[in-house]
Nucleic acid binder design. Structure first.
Lengths: 186, 186
DNA sequence: CTGTACATGTAACGCGTTACATGATTGG
DNA sequence: CCAATCATGTAACGCGTTACATGTACAG
């Protein structure tokens, strides 16, 4: 159900095509969400059937026609209701990389360390992108009231990346220490 | 595909019933994964068809019969192949709570603060559970080589909770500050 | 007498992922 | 000439969630 609210939320800022909504997902929601364009198109069709959004086809000369979606009152009401009423459940992770980490006892220590070092690089790269994004959107940490949500979640994303990187360093040290102790561990 | 590997991974430790695998998910994989028992039963049937695991029905007198699954060589090989070969992609979050945070500009500041305070409590509760679990499984931070993966991922889970809690404190302060400045923000 | 744990599932539906399809314009 | 970008989708399949179904034993 949450993709629906994500799309309604984006449409509170501007009317947009499915394509543009997909771009916005990749750009701003990367901090805490992801969605494929196929999901977005599917969801938009459903939401129009339910009367939450409406669409208008815009003819273009040099480009293919596009379909612009606009938020309807019913959609806005549903969004606000969700924002106020839904209960708060602790968030759960679901992470492929950590699943592999949880089985590190099955592979050699060197493999495990190499894995963590590559994972660290990936997250450092991600952090770099987020920092750049924040600098261009909120220079000097300044933000407008209408961007409050984005400001808060982008900080979350950045801290999450830092947490990952720090944990990688910690985990690498742990494995190196158990390696030194050698076979007398266990 | 990942649930398959999670189950194969658990079965490297011991043979188990679907019920027990579900318990183990809730207990140890809570740090980075979740799965419903219905998924687990469905996946086990498929894995048996593929010859990755085998099962044996054990009759019981006072309880219903149970079906014990055991890892087969083919399953173990597939698991190791996955552990070694699959490329490393940066992890992506998907979090309902953050989706709501990203729309905080649509609700009053007091509501937003109340939301964050409840979210903080939830994560403090989660942290407490994880700390208890770690103390009982790894007293004094000691662990056996065969538990390396669990040791590393449970640290990740704990740090993740701490990161959440710290971010909540930060976000609450940000909102309080914009509230003070009042209408001259924007 | 009620709820919880044990133990295993089916059915229905919705979300997530991958592959495929089409076809124009612009930049290197 | 090739790749990328703009723009919109269908189809197939697998994963995730919720509701329902069945029946016993034990603790409070």
């Amino acid at each position: 159900m949450a993709l629906k609210y994500a799309l309604l939320g984006l449409l509170t800022k501007n009317e947009a095509t499915g394509y543009e909504l997909n771009q916005q997902f990749k750009e701003t929601m990367i901090h805490f969400w992801s969605a494929h364009h196929t999901q977005i198109y599917r969801q938009l069709v459903k939401m129009e059937e339910e009367g939450l959004v409406s669409s208008q086809v815009v003819h273009q000369v040099d480009y293919p026609d596009k379909k612009v979606y606009r938020l309807e009152d019913k959609g806005y009401e549903m969004l606000l209701q969700w924002l106020f009423s839904k209960e708060i459940l602790p968030s759960t992770l679901k992470d492929d990389l950590l699943l592999r980490v949880s089985l590190f006892q099955l592979i050699p220590a060197d493999e495990a360390i190499a894995f963590l070092e590559r994972a660290k690089e990936q997250h450092m790269f991600g952090l770099g992108l987020m920092e750049k994004w924040r600098d261009s959107h909120f220079p000097e940490g300044e933000f407008n009231q209408e961007d409050l949500g984005e400001y808060l979640t982008s900080e979350f994303g950045q801290r999450y990346m830092q947490h990952w990187i720090e944990w990688c360093d910690w985990a690498i040290q742990v494995i190196k220490r158990t390696k030194e102790k050698g076979s007398d561990v266990k």
